[in-house]
Design a protein around this nucleic acid. Sequence first.
DNA 1: AAGGCTACCAACCGCGCGCCC
DNA 2: CGGGCGCGCGGTTGGTAGCCT
Length: 298
Amino acid sequence: MGRSPCCEKAHTNKGAWTKEEDQRLIEYIRVHGEGCWRSLPKAAGLLRCGKSCRLRWINYLRPDLKRGNFTEEEDEIIIKLHSLLGNKWSLIAGRLPGRTDNEIKNYWNTHIKRKLISRGIDPQTHRPLGEKTTAAATAKNPTSTTTTTIKTTHLDFKNNPPQSLAEINVLKSNLDFHHSTFIPTKVEAASLEEPNCTSSSMTTDEEQQQQQKRETQEVNLELSIGLAGAIRPESTRTSSPNSAESRLQAVVTTTTHQLFGSVVTRAVCLCCQLGSSQQRSDQLCRNCQSSNGVYRYY
DNA sequence: AAGGCTACCAACCGCGCGCCC
DNA sequence: CGGGCGCGCGGTTGGTAGCCT
């Protein structure tokens, strides 16, 4: 069965927005707030589809948008986050107040890619150019311009949820591996910008072993984000205390402590940790407060 | 001045996910 | 449980401004 169109295309405008359309949209959202995008165009008297309105608002009209060039600091944050998250533009945008996913995506494709290449770094893998890419990454990403999501069968708990403590332990060990290979510490993160981002004390053989380990134990970066999401406010948790999910969460909580070094007992603002906020590091900036705790770690 | 090329970015498209019935 | 709906996301497209020849 075909999917129903998001709007009546015959009666909708397309292309650039006019000032009048912008004004109508702004006015409507000012009065009624965001949401219900499907019905918004009709209610606001706009001949646009809801998706188009949403996009226009989010990417252009929102009052909290930061216009203008990206700073060097923002560049570095984007690069670091991309090395952790891949092409998860919305997640990256969530860590850069006032920037939209679309804006970051465009900026990445037009500026940062080139910048990294000029530094001798592969913008997709964040490894030195010329270094062998994994077969999985190559197969997943034949054009090298699209998503390089490193998949794992072990950590795909959406399709294969852990059924036993034993499986959870496997998951935990994978997460430990994840930590040791992909989540950079502050020192490691700093080295990400270097053309040779491997540890300087590592011998070539050790590097090759690490590389082989990476190839055999693929890690799902996408999942690592989901795990953070598992640590959500108590009120929103619905799983039973003995469910695989809640047991997994207990592991995740423990593991998250390990992932980020010292045990943190309260919410920490990642923006601050990454240096994008002037906020004290033990406080949440507005951006993190509004993220529903998804990216806080405890 | 005109045409070609490139870079930029707003907007579109298709798909996946979660929620609800 | 399955299907429809609304929303959000990532990839792609297309218009345009700026630069070069």
